[in-house]
Write a protein that binds this DNA or RNA. Structure first.
Lengths: 347, 347
DNA sequence: CTGTTAGCGCTTTCAA
DNA sequence: TTGAAAGCGCTAACAG
């Protein structure tokens, strides 16, 4: 593994008998190079196996063509969202710098932001869902001082932030309406932790769907779980006590729905004859649960893609503006809510 | 968002009335600075809010303190492995540069390696499992030319490569032995795609466990699936035809096991009375399947951690060596197989 | 203990 | 269409 120095632009220049500049022009596809010179340079590049150092380029240009991605357990948004992010970034020519944020205290956020900015990321994707006040730092001067664009995934609209999110409200409504259309009369709801924005939006959707049909929405027709299968099981038992006439239940994620299926079976309830269950997409295997689970599907890769597109758009805009004239100082706010959710109907 | 230039080391030097070098010494915690000077510099740093540019540092030092992670769908090793990687990298002060590799043709691999090396990653984690000949490029000069250490996850031992892997063979044996200990006599196996190293190792384990007890291992006591739940379902039907007296089945992953549970139920088989099923860990929810699934657990974060530890060890070694003397040219090969798997027994 | 001088490899700016 | 010079922010190597 002997370290052969990578050839630099000067090596190429020397070999091709031109200046570094000309080489630079060639690798940047500048039109202002004669064909003859270009060929000559390209030949030298090929001969030496030259590759431009991105580090040097980043350094001299002051930008890195890389995006910071801040996540927690990589899992909150599921793998599929990350795939969307990764693919889109690749497509647009950006690299991803991944950071895990253990918790959302300022003590954690500040150093992690600095780590990203010290590496000169061109923009940041904040891939941590909104849970209680974990986005409170947005109202801090810490946020205002961030010199690069940020896009947030799945948080409530915020005046200062760019947000890309699914409309969980609509998803919740859809789920509930589906149950109503199936002729169910008594629709309970097992929510996720209500300090999650996603969970509370789904709950609002459930409520709205019931209200649309003039049904009462009683507090004890709803029990809160913690997303885990075990909590779904427990929640279902409590819910059934509160609401014995319940003939359908909308569960805020698939894992809890799994617990519900188990609990219902233990109670001797037949599904779907005695009880209809609908989940909310976070597992791909829902259709193979026993019995199969109807669920609300979200196109998660699309969410990730949209986030990156939005971010890169802002980045390019920024570098454009900076180059031309620094007139555009109004805050750029994109609030993109993806309304499309698909109901996966299982016969 | 007006761009205030980040203060540089020179700004600090000017303010503190010292040379850039001294500032550099302070931020690098060199002992060769008087307390008085140090205080003065630290004060200036604080006043200016100075942070060292990692890009400039990378550029000048020729190393970036970042690791390239090459994965496919982020999913092959599951989130948990990634968590292990991310945490350990953070702990050791390295950043992660993530790359998705759509397929393993040389046409894909070469540019992606270049992308990583152009950004001067200090090392690479190859987080794509071995499937048929997708590691064939290791025997190519492409591999030999990579100037940084690489660690491979989950591949068969290879003379030129550092590998960190679980012992799927032992896992498969454990699963099978567990069924035998439960008194089962006829143990079928649903394998993953056999061109996956992991799948074929698990199959070998099944075979070995049966042979140990003097049982015959017939080819039609085994059916191959494709990891998906649907394939597990189909495979089970075929297997049951081939092997009607089967009273237990070892399924090579949990998703397929899910399909088996469904299929068994459709056949009117009671679990575990008529049929014992054991899976192999890739879902956290297995215990909530209906009925609950016994599975072989692997400590996946540990695998990721180990990979990063190994890699960073080699990196530091390399930079040491380079600095001191370049005598150490023997290939450094670590083959680490983690033998520990835990059986998750569900009552 | 501290400062000076180079230089990392590229882009930018200005001249020719 | 080409080249020369300067500089990005830091560290390394050598002096003092």
């Amino acid at each position: 593994m002997q370290q052969v120095k990578r050839p630099s632009i000067s090596d190429v220049a020397k070999l091709a008998n031109v200046s570094k500049q000309t080489v630079s022009r060639v690798i940047n596809e500048s039109p202002n190079v004669s064909d003859k010179t270009r060929q000559c340079v390209l030949q030298a590049i090929a001969d030496l196996g030259f590759r431009r150092s991105e580090v040097a380029r980043s350094f001299s240009q002051g930008r890195t063509y890389s995006l910071g991605v801040v996540g927690r357990n990589l899992i909150y948004f599921g793998t599929s969202t990350y795939i969307g992010i990764a693919r889109q970034a690749e497509t647009l020519g950006y690299s991803l710098l991944l950071k895990e944020l253990p918790d959302s205290s300022i003590d954690q956020i500040e150093p992690m932001l600095h780590a990203l900015l010290d590496r000169q990321v061109d923009g940041i994707v904040w891939a941590i869902p909104e849970i209680s006040d974990n986005h409170a730092w947005l109202d801090t001067e810490l946020f205002d001082q961030i010199p690069v664009p940020i896009v947030f995934l799945s948080m409530a609209p915020h005046p200062k932030a760019s947000v890309v999110a699914y409309d969980n409200f609509v998803g919740g409504m859809q789920a509930t309406q589906h149950l109503l259309e199936c002729g169910r009369q008594h629709i309970g709801h097992i929510t996720g932790p209500l300090d999650w924005w996603d969970a509370s939006e789904r709950r609002r959707g459930w409520e709205a769907a019931l209200q649309q049909t003039g049904r009462p929405v009683l507090p004890n027709h709803m029990v809160t779980g913690n997303w885990d299968a075990a909590s779904g099981e427990a929640a279902f038992h409590r819910l059934l006590e509160n609401y014995p006439e319940m003939d359908a239940v909308f569960v805020s994620n698939d894992k809890m729905a799994l617990g519900v299926l188990l609990a219902a079976h233990d109670k001797g309830l037949r599904i779907p004859e005695d009880l209809a269950v609908i989940g909310f997409d976070d597992i791909t295997e829902s259709a193979y649960f026993h019995p199969p689970l109807t669920t609300v599907l979200q196109n998660k890769p699309a969410l990730g893609q949209l986030a990156v597109k939005t971010l890169v758009h802002k980045i390019e805009e920024k570098f454009q503006t900076e180059t031309q004239t620094a007139l555009d100082s109004e805050p750029l706010v994109h609030q993109l809510i993806v309304r499309k959710t698909t109901l996966m109907r299982v016969p």
